[in-house]
Design a protein around this nucleic acid. Structure first.
Lengths: 351, 351
DNA sequence: ATCACTTATGGGAGCGCTCCCACCCTACTT
DNA sequence: AAGTAGGGTGGGAGCGCTCCCATAAGTGAT
């Protein structure tokens, strides 16, 4: 490694070629790892590259090859949850990790209002990103369909329905919920309330299904008075908990579909004089930092956000490779790949 | 807005020119908002752009203009705190917010081990980013100096020393610490322990200074037995708290320089049978999600991470503009700009 | 009417790569 | 001996822009 002239103009491929005494094409081949280069020549070129501190210009490469070596991660900034929920940062971190071993860039993009569709489409067109990672899409998010239609390799972070056409990575929401309920039952609880997430979010719906099925499996009758629907936020957790307490004062356990809602529920329970876990067991979902720091510690269904991010990136790389290999849309779409990562119940003092 | 041919090749500048019946140069001028275009022509071009759904190709533009319209945000992934501390996600979110109004892209980069220096430098060279945002640099981080020397517009998120040569954005660590101590004193506490951050981090050092000075201002003698140094982590918070309790069993308050350390301290205090806040008042720093969900709520010095991110982006834009305006290095370096954002003490049950 | 400016516009010359075709040379075939 | 593959290599032709110079047209002063 030699000093590459402090700053100023960086060497070009052509200069490397001149230095190594070969043609431009050959240097290009070496840079891109083509096998059609003799050992000698390769060594000579590599030496020239090192001596000159040559680094290929991304823009030139993107222009000539018509690929950008970058992927866009689109986060719904509108909900501004990126700032409060570790879910997003975990995901993004995982993606970054997976990409570090690649030469792909991570373009982070915040999708503001639903109306930003056009802006985003233009953005993707302008950058000709090789792929897109869409985090947290609602069942009615139009962006996902747009991407599908544009035929840009895309992976989303939670299928929008059971027959999601786009490849996806998700946690096993259904089993996660079952494990939570099973755990509560094993603790002797029989009157288990559910604070569910928005049912237009597929993952939230799966959790509800898991709750229902596990109750049945344990021979406990489903009681709709014990079920309330919220939107994952703390405030709604409070409201629904208060309502549940009114409707079903005899409940002895609560399964909230997010830690945030569990936190809201806890406050209401406490104000109502119910002790946790003596009077009421509480279980959350996410195993976020909140769960670890709540008092008592919140039993929660852990989502491996970091692994999810990593998995998304890896799946996307496959998609991009497939697309490049010429398996065009119609063929590829035959079998979208859906990855489901297992959850893990982290038991703490609240149950 | 018209359908831009479902997918396939996107229109080029030249096609827009042909359609509008003008030359390439003129379209370029319109796209880039040059004033040297007549109203008529401008309108004609804009219509052609809309009809064709033209979006300029970023790569081509970057190549021709030798600027990338993108900035890199470098986060020290090594510490993997990105995943656990809201500090980072808040920052990044703020940056994203500020950039949304620009046409600049956000390249998110994780700086792994200290040895990644070369990789990163190559990365920046390859992408010819217009600027760099460096989050959380240690006093001895070599990357910052490298950037300075490379003459790439850079803003860092916390000066490394009192005479930081790079522009920076920071919270008022000193005043934040003072407000925390003043608050504890106002609660009648006189034996206030400090769990300080690593003193090679300038911001942490400033907090220590604030602690010292405020004690003096309140006429309380400094007692080194009440001061312990840690590294911002929960585990170290635990360890140091245990040591403090041994060295100074009579302490009646603790100021921890991060919420995470405060959380660790709380556990130890509780195990030692000290009640919070009756026996010992506890104050943290960051006002992260942890503070809000601790039991009792943790009084904490709030850092406006989101605003900091936004401020960093804005400062960087200025830097880039200055650099482009030809005020070269030597001149620019005369007065690096340092922005210091105020903190706010959020009082909760722990004090 | 002439000259000197100013303003609007067209288009050539790259930016630094990749792609691909032509070419050379050696190594086998028949 | 001539013929046929190939591997290895050089370099032309772009990719889609921006920059800038040349040119055309318009404006007011002489």
């Amino acid at each position: 490694m030699t000093a590459h002239g402090t700053h100023g103009r960086r060497p070009t491929l052509e200069e490397v070629a001149a230095r190594a005494g070969v043609g431009r094409g050959t240097v290009s081949r070496v840079i891109n790892g083509s096998p059609r280069v003799s050992e000698q020549t390769r060594a000579a070129v590599e030496e020239a590259v090192a001596e000159l501190g040559y680094v290929p210009n991304t823009a030139a490469r993107a222009l000539a090859a018509n690929r950008s070596d970058s992927i866009a991660v689109i986060v719904p900034e509108a909900e501004s949850r990126f700032f409060s929920e570790p879910y997003f940062s975990g995901m993004v971190g995982g993606v970054g990790l997976a990409l570090a071993d690649t030469n792909l860039q991570l373009l982070l993009t915040f999708a503001r209002g639903e109306r930003e569709q056009d802006r985003l489409t233009a953005y993707l067109a302008a950058h000709r990103v090789d792929g897109v990672l869409l985090i947290s899409v609602h069942a009615d998010d139009p962006l996902a369909d747009r991407l599908l239609q544009l035929d840009i390799p895309t992976v989303i972070s939670g299928p929008r329905s059971a027959d999601e056409p786009l490849p996806s990575v998700d946690t096993d929401n259904y089993e996660g919920a079952r494990s939570a309920v099973a755990h509560l039952v094993s603790r002797g609880r029989r009157s288990i309330a559910l604070i569910a997430g928005p049912q237009n979010v597929y993952g939230a719906e799966r959790r509800t299904a898991g709750y229902v099925d596990q109750l049945a499996a344990d021979g406990i009758a489903y009681d709709e008075k014990l079920v309330a629907y919220a939107d994952f936020t703390e405030e709604m957790g409070r409201r629904r908990m208060a309502e549940l307490l009114e409707r079903a004062p005899g409940l002895d356990a609560v399964f909230a579909c997010s830690d945030l809602m569990a936190s809201g529920a806890r406050q209401v329970l406490r104000e109502a004089g119910r002790r946790i876990p003596q009077d009421v067991s509480l279980v959350g979902f996410d195993d976020s930092v909140i769960a670890r720091h709540m008092e008592p510690g919140l039993t929660s269904v852990r989502q491996p956000t970091r692994d999810m991010g990593r998995a998304m990136a890896e799946l996307l790389l496959d998609e991009i490779a497939d697309a490049a290999a010429g398996k065009r849309s119609s063929v590829r779409r035959g079998t979208p790949r859906h990855l489901v990562l297992p959850t893990e119940l982290v038991v703490r003092g609240s149950s």
